[in-house]
Simulated assay, not measured.
Amino acid sequence: MKVRVDDGKCCGAGTCVMLAPDVFDQRDEDGIVVLLDETPPERLHATVREAAGVCPAAAIELDENV
């Protein structure tokens, strides 16, 4: 799995950080998403999928074919 984020779409809700803090963080100044791990280990894939699915701005993209 490869994760990409579009920080231009991000609204700073922070749901991704709450679900997968090893993969996502937020900038201190505005709460916009920061990608910590673009190729998370398999044990985190289900959680990362959930984070992408609940992102209110659809700012997280997943490539499952990597």
Rank of each mutant, 00 (worst) to 15 (best):
K2R: 15
V3P: 14
V3S: 10
V5Y: 01
D6Y: 13
D7Q: 09
D7H: 06
K9H: 11
C10T: 08
C11T: 14
C11D: 14
G14M: 05
T15C: 14
V17K: 12
V17N: 09
V17W: 08
M18R: 15
L19P: 13
L19I: 15
A20P: 06
P21Q: 07
V23R: 06
V23S: 07
F24H: 10
D25K: 11
D25Q: 11
D25G: 13
D30W: 06
D30G: 07
G31K: 00
G31S: 01
G31M: 02
I32M: 11
I32L: 14
V33T: 11
V33M: 09
V33I: 14
L36R: 10
L36E: 03
L36N: 07
L36C: 04
E38P: 13
E38K: 14
T39S: 12
R43S: 09
L44I: 04
H45P: 00
A46Y: 00
A46V: 04
R49E: 06
E50I: 00
E50C: 00
A51P: 07
A51G: 04
G53Y: 08
G53V: 03
G53C: 01
G53D: 11
V54I: 08
C55Y: 05
C55E: 12
C55S: 02
P56T: 05
A58C: 07
I60C: 06
E61D: 13
E61G: 03
E61H: 05
L62R: 05
D63Q: 05
D63V: 00
D63F: 05
E64N: 00
V66A: 15
V66P: 07
V66S: 14
V66E: 13
